[in-house]
Design a protein around this nucleic acid. Structure first.
Lengths: 217, 217
DNA sequence: TTTATTCAAAATTACAATATTTTTTTAATA
DNA sequence: TATTAAAAAAATATTGTAATTTTGAATAAA
């Protein structure tokens, strides 16, 4: 269940990635190796490995011989990312609802329960657990599509999800109640094996999030 | 136009990737750093950077603390990759045909011309230019979807295309005439801005390639 | 036959050397 | 004097090597 991070290399990679997604490393920020060495207490070797990997995933850009910087953000990029998320996640959702077994249902119920708990807290004004909220939102969406029978699709989706999420954090404000209701609808439709409805709601969910974020940029 | 490779790091990355796609490094092959050091005349630092990047793209798998190996192949993986290629490339093709301008048409005509030339040679029995054939096939498919207005989509597609291609090389035999005809049909449909037909042919093109490869595995 | 222990192989990481880019300073020209 | 060009210096990225850690195999003890 837990994602054990054993080597310094992989934990450094995870930390930088998290800092980019949550904005601690701002879009377009210059990533000097000397600076990162202090910040993450790792050697250039380790840091470059992490940065190269992040570059290949698109969280970082590498300017040959001139270092790395955090991938910039733009309205156009957000639109591309949102369209891709709709494409990938809806495709996966459809087959997942068709194929999902009892384990899938159980896991989905569990994920939705945890998401509801944190959503209630957030609604009550507790904004100190954004990381946990991200995790539970992710686990819910992941649980929905997990039975899609394509590891390759899930892998691509995971990256796109994170990129979409960075924009949400960027504008800080949350859609709140509306998004919570969409999660409910998706959950109900999925359990009822109504993939058509589930997909429709998911697309709306992503598209409204896009519009909300766009208007705040 | 040309993809200049300036640092040892990026050229090493490209060489290993090519060796994986063309099978010089066989599926599941163990990638010991000492061995690679000789083969690519590069240091472990450089090699690890390349391998980590390839791992993040899925051409290599990294077993923490126990080294790297070439990603294995399987029928199931090929099916996943083919489905993803259809999803991504058909989506891109649709918008590309809608948006493509005169430059797009010109580039497409050029790409198709070069592809036809090499296809004729291949049909005549010249099998010594598989790398060039790969390049022209790629450039043709890329030219078709280039105007899709999503760099993010094109980036994901590029990786999936390469993974699909590795399987084609793996079974060595080529569909030949059939595939050539499909390229023609796609080209005509694209220029006629008949995206429905183009998409239909593209899906058939990929699916027949899949079946051809599957049956040889 | 199983469990420790030791040894060898291999991966990970730090550090140092090299090469490249960027900035600053100096010199030359209009 | 202002402006451009050249040279030098500083900052930074890239790459190689060596030290450290971890794993896997071989041997010895239970």
């Amino acid at each position: 269940m837990k994602n054990y991070i054993s080597t310094l290399g992989s934990s450094t990679y995870e930390r930088i990635k998290k800092d980019i997604i949550f904005g601690a490393l701002a879009p377009s920020a210059n990533l000097k190796l000397d600076g990162l060495k202090e910040r993450y207490t790792a050697s250039v070797t380790t840091l470059r490995e992490a940065l190269k990997t992040l570059a290949s995933e698109g969280f970082v850009e590498a300017a040959e011989q001139r270092g790395f910087f955090v991938s910039p953000v733009s309205k156009n990029d957000l639109i591309e990312i949102s369209d891709l998320r709709i494409l990938l996640e809806c495709t996966a959702l459809k087959t997942s609802i068709t194929n999902g077994d009892a384990d899938w249902e159980g896991n989905l119920v569990s994920a939705r329960h945890k998401l509801q708990m944190i959503e209630a807290k957030m609604r009550a004004g507790d904004t100190g657990q954004i990381e946990l909220w991200k995790r539970y939102d992710w686990e819910f969406h992941q649980a929905l599509i997990e039975a899609c029978n394509s590891q390759n699709l899930l892998a691509l989706h995971a990256i796109i999800y994170d990129k979409y999420f960075r924009y949400q954090i960027l504008v800080l404000t949350n859609r709140g109640d509306e998004a919570v209701a969409e999660h409910c609808e998706m959950f109900e439709a999925a359990l009822a094996r109504d993939s058509q409805t589930a997909i429709k709601v998911l697309e709306r969910h992503i598209r409204l999030g896009l519009e909300h974020t766009l208007s705040a940029m």
